[in-house]
Nucleic acid binder design. Structure first.
Length: 213
DNA sequence: TCTAAGATGGGT
DNA sequence: CCCATCTTAGAA
């Protein structure tokens, strides 16, 4: 549960630019993602992420170099990469690392915390467990779309905050929907909060392993 | 220039 | 299982 918001600290640029993308994806579990569009404040706790590692990762959009779509991935960390998936869904990513290293973290699920009524309106559903349990769903619930590509995540439209009191129970698993990625298809670069009711997919016991808490 | 397939979700 | 329907890579 959310406690006194005043003790929370907004994540600075260095959170996104220091360390490798896999560590950052893991460290993002438990952080709180905020949006403030149209006078509507909404926030959710990140409970599921995936790391995508630039030119080293066949599943990453930047694997084959720059395009108009993925341009922001080639800049500094701490900016949003929002792209349209299957022509329908707006998927929200957090660019990490510094220039030339086109890494990003896909945020796959959050737990609704603030502005839940706004989220229900945007999603047109009352089922709280179905509001943000998937990358397309959370973008709708939080009001994120491709217009927000390249948004500075240390600004006041979309930002993240730390919650030092949150107890993590992180599980690692293979990433969703990247069967085509050859040698990289089975990398354990999906991270989620093991006891969360708000993740996008159930645990796959054969592959999942608990790596920290 | 054309076509297939994709980091998905909702409905039958 | 099928559909929505944008972007990209790779085939003609």
């Amino acid at each position: 549960m959310l406690k006194d918001i005043r003790q929370y600290v907004k994540l600075p640029r260095t959170f996104f630019t220091k360390g490798n993308v896999v560590e950052i994806a893991e460290n993002l579990i438990g952080k709180i993602l905020y949006t403030a569009f149209d006078q509507q404040l909404a926030a959710g706790r990140i409970v599921e992420t995936e790391a995508y590692c630039g030119s080293n990762d066949q599943a990453c959009h930047a694997f084959r170099g720059g395009t108009a779509r993925n341009e922001v991935m080639f800049g500094d960390g701490g900016y949003a990469y929002v792209y349209l998936c299957y022509g329908v869904h707006h998927l929200f990513n957090i660019v990490t690392n510094t220039k030339k290293n086109a890494d990003a973290v896909l945020v796959r699920a959050v737990e609704p915390l603030i502005g839940i009524d706004f989220m229900k309106q945007r999603r047109n559903t009352e089922n709280q467990q179905n509001l943000t349990s998937g990358p397309g769903k959370l973008s709708v619930a939080l009001g994120i779309n491709t217009k927000h590509n390249k948004t500075d995540l240390t600004g006041d439209l979309i930002w993240l905050m730390d919650d030092p009191s949150f107890e993590r129970n992180i599980v690692a698993d293979r990433r969703v929907g990247v069967d085509y990625a050859g040698r990289d298809a089975n990398l354990p670069w999906r991270f989620f909060q093991g006891n969360s009711l708000f993740v996008s997919k159930p645990v796959q016991p054969s592959l999942a392993k608990n790596i920290s808490n």
